[in-house]
């Protein structure tokens, strides 16, 4: 397969959700879509490994799900809005997963945003 290259790929630390990522992450995002339902969220929590297997995630994706590694999931084709449904199961919000992806504590991440408001 030959994927078209895009000038936006030069933007650092950014994973633009294009066709290539959509293909890579389809099963993962499809699993996350089911987390709109409380019943499915409970089923996932009861046996996360089995739930990932049911949706035919790759081994790498399944491991990243078990580790709640948002950045890795993003790199493996996850879309941030679908990953948000996954993170929501654990009470994660955009600031906690922002912190995780940037290697900061949540407090450091929040402080960075507050500082952006002051400058």
């Amino acid at each position: 397969m030959v994927w078209k290259e895009h000038d936006y790929e030069k933007i650092p630390g950014t994973y633009v959700f294009n066709g290539r990522r959509a293909v890579m992450g389809y099963a993962l995002n499809k699993m996350c879509m089911t987390f709109n339902s409380e019943e499915n969220r409970q089923e996932f929590l009861e046996d996360r490994d089995a739930y990932c297997r049911k949706f035919k995630l790759t081994d790498e994706q399944r491991e990243a799900v078990l580790e709640k590694d948002i950045l890795r999931l993003l790199q493996l084709g996850g879309n941030i809005y679908y990953l948000a449904k996954f993170g929501g199961i654990y009470g994660m919000n955009s600031q906690s997963w922002g912190a995780q992806q940037t290697g900061m504590t949540v407090e450091e991440f929040k402080a960075m945003l507050l500082k952006a408001g002051e400058d």
Partner: peptide, 13 residues
């Protein structure tokens, strides 16, 4: 705003 990647938290006033 940017929610994803190592550039999360990006703001450009």
């Amino acid at each position: 705003h940017q929610l994803q990647g190592e550039r999360s938290g990006f703001i450009n006033k």
